[in-house]
Amino acid sequence: MSRIRFENVYKSFSDVKALSDVTFEVSEGSSTGILGPNGSGKTTLMKILTGLLRPDSGRVSVNDISVLINPKEAMKHVGSLIEQPEFYTYLSGYETLEFACRIRDLGKEETKNEITRVSKLTGCFDYLQRRTGGYSRGMKQRLGLSIALAGDPEILVLDEPTFGLDPKGMKELGDLILDMRKTKTILFSTHLLNEARSLCDRIIIMENGHMKYDSKDDPSAKILRIKIFGRINNIPELSSFGSYSLTEDSILINKKEEIDNYEIIDMLVSNGIKIDMVEDFDTLSAKYLAVVEKGS
């Protein structure tokens, strides 16, 4: 089932075409990264999906509910973090989260439990009682992510979620997103190649408002390279994950559509294989640069 659907979406600001004929679907349980340089249309796409902007033409839907016709109903399924969030400065983080929970029809007791759950997940629990006016950029980002997670929506729309976080925070957030991939549909934008590569099972590259590359249509994008420590000759049977071959120090596996990287890694680790590195075999950075340079 497609959770998110963009159909022939166009958007322009005065003379600038922000989006041109953008069409793609995000299927249930997938993690899709929108990659592109500044001004490529990533945030515009996110804003249209969350009802902050209206497209000039085209259709946008969430769980087959039109975002344009019935935004309130559509947004019940979506938690979002758009740009760098700001909050009402006289309210505490707790009150800000409480508002998001109550809007999602949670009762008082449920709200209390949900605030504790999401704030512990994102690491903002300790400063929830402070007014948001005194929050640092990283604290705001964590609170923004808590709002996105409040009420446990099945779809997450995250616009550069690691912006403003220190390396530790980036790592924690990356782990959180990896964990959420198991249960949620995630669409997130970034201009960091490594972030997209490690967190997404599908990557769309945008440039000047056009979709320039979709890893879904690129067979080479599914080849995973797993570099291991030690001898390569005691590798267990991996054909249930897809066809594979062995090199001197690595396994190259052309994994099946429904297989997630961590399933393969879990299997190898449980068989006592020590993994040095996991990466997409194709060089996404080369593709990204090719797309961007071609565009410019």
Partner: peptide, 14 residues
């Protein structure tokens, strides 16, 4: 101006 719209408007509230 204060950019609070980015976290308030996408909530499921009209």
């Amino acid at each position: 101006e204060s950019r609070t719209a980015f976290n308030v408007f996408p909530l499921p509230v009209s």
